[in-house]
Design a protein around this nucleic acid. Structure first.
Length: 431
RNA sequence: GUGAGUGUAGCUCAACGGUUAGAGCACUGGACUGUGGCUCCAGGUGUUGGGGGUUCAAGUCCCCUCACUCACCCCA
């Protein structure tokens, strides 16, 4: 008969141990998922280096002003999403919400513009934005980004976009859409903005609440609104393409023709708006329908004035950033994970065998072979089961018999064949 | 910041307001004393997220709170 169990720790003052969780919107990355991350990072490095991009490691905290000035004071990122703190001396510092500004700061501070142009860099690492988490959106998220500084040649735009395409192809991703747009330069963009303001000025009252706000700080965004009434109201609104200056128009046309030349399938999306103020001319985005509302897996564009803003010489530039979590999620649903497996598992019976196993394991490891050994004196059966679970290539079995005969038994798990070899030859067996 | 949904074993999920909250997977052992995968048997685990309330009785109903999820906003 079973009895009701009395709770343990009757006199415990605390009701329960405090449980620690990662902060909201911040997640741990561990095996097996981490292997996908490694694959993405390695692929990026391989592909980007064939285009001459080299790694640059900028800090993840900067003076707050670096982001305010570059991203724009009235953007959502700066207004409400930055992790900003005071350090012990009272300076305002911020965890980077994006990677371009720190890289440009580094470029200017270290006079990298004195090196042959264009200079091409890639980076990867965590970014931080204080947002409400949802699918594909986190407070600490990872980006791989590239930046090419020092050329306004449209070839660079096309090359950069086609490099992104190659990267995504290498990962085996399908069903992605490339969207490109031009948002003009500091000369022609104000004209377009004014035209939009004019167009919507008498329709203001009927716009949705969000669009009324957009009218004030970013009227281009009204073109992107999902509310039915706003969609109706914007029929006949002025188009960016009609307002590009001749320089921007030509640049855009060349980029498009080169994208054709490089077999990048794309669509022009004239309503695509970037969230950061520093973009000029070419902007682009890679989207998918497989990720829910956060559909951009990578995005970027030109920023021809940013280096000057940081006090450097006139230096046109272009770059993009890839959302790691979003790429990883796509790979998880479409690909099988390649989990690394040990080559050898050593199963032992008895204490003398355990010592022998340690010696053999070490020797094999010195030769670069991944070896696991059985622990805690489990039965041979359970050790073999563990080897099977780990998908080990071979099991070596060592017991009293083997020690007295001087031969170790081996078994190949894929087909069950087995045999034995002298201890002294075990070291060479797996070469 | 706004709105909606969900919290039960390590994981995936059951349980009309009514005994001691169950099952699969996984884990460990055994059948097979030194040979994995298949099969069968056995074994352990829960403060039902937390707190309060209604009730003879709450995993189940109500309130609060926390966490997670999705969406809006925005973005990679």
């Amino acid at each position: 008969m079973r009895h009701r169990r009395e709770p343990l720790g009757l006199s415990s003052g605390r009701s329960s141990a405090e449980r620690y969780n990662a902060l909201k919107g911040i997640q741990d990355i561990y095996p097996p998922e981490v292997f996908i991350w490694q694959k993405v990072e390695n692929t990026a490095k391989d592909v980007f280096s064939t285009y001459g991009f080299q790694e640059l490691r900028a800090p993840i905290i900067e003076a707050t002003d670096i982001f305010v000035r570059s991203i724009g004071e009235t953007t959502d990122i700066v207004e409400k999403e930055m992790y900003t703190f005071s350090d012990k001396a009272g300076r305002s510092i911020t965890l980077r919400p994006e990677g371009t500004a720190p890289l440009v700061r580094c470029y200017v501070q270290n006079h990298l513009y004195n090196l042959p142009s264009p200079q091409k860099f890639f980076y990867s690492g965590p970014m931080f934005r204080y947002e409400r988490p949802q699918k594909g959106r986190f407070r600490q998220f990872y980006q791989i980004g590239v930046e090419a500084l020092g050329s306004s040649d449209p070839k660079l735009d096309a090359e950069t976009i086609s490099m992104l395409k190659l990267f995504l192809e290498r990962l085996g991703l399908k069903g992605l859409n490339f969207e490109v747009n031009s948002i003009g330069c500091e000369k022609c963009r104000p004209d377009y903005k004014n035209a939009l303001l004019n167009f919507f000025s008498d329709k203001m009252n009927r716009l949705c609440l969000d669009c009324k706000r957009r009218y004030e700080y970013n009227p281009l965004r009204i073109l992107d609104c999902k509310v039915d009434e706003c969609i109706k109201l914007r029929v006949g609104a002025p188009q960016v393409m009609d307002f590009l200056c001749s320089g921007c128009r030509t640049h855009f046309d060349v980029v498009l023709s080169l994208l054709h030349l490089l077999n990048v399938p794309f669509e022009i999306n004239t309503t695509m708006v970037r969230g950061l103020d520093y973009y000029t001319r070419t902007t682009f985005e890679v989207t998918t329908k497989q990720l829910g509302a956060q559909n951009a897996v990578a995005a970027g564009g030109r920023y021809d004035k940013l280096v000057e803003e940081f006090g450097g010489p006139p230096t046109p530039a272009i770059g993009f950033a890839i959302g790691m979590e979003r790429i990883v999620e796509l790979l998880q649903t479409s690909n099988k994970q390649d989990i690394p497996n040990p080559k050898v598992f050593i199963a032992t019976i008895g204490a003398p065998a355990e010592k022998e196993a340690l010696i053999i394991a070490n020797r094999l490891r010195e030769n670069g072979i991944w070896v696991e050994i059985g622990y805690a004196g489990n039965s041979l059966k359970s050790q073999l089961r563990k080897a099977d679970r780990l998908s080990a290539g071979y099991v070596l079995i060592i017991g009293d018999d083997e020690i007295s005969s001087g031969k170790v038994k081996w078994k190949r798990l894929s087909d069950g064949t087995q045999g034995e070899i002298p201890f002294s030859e075990a070291y060479d067996f797996f070469q």
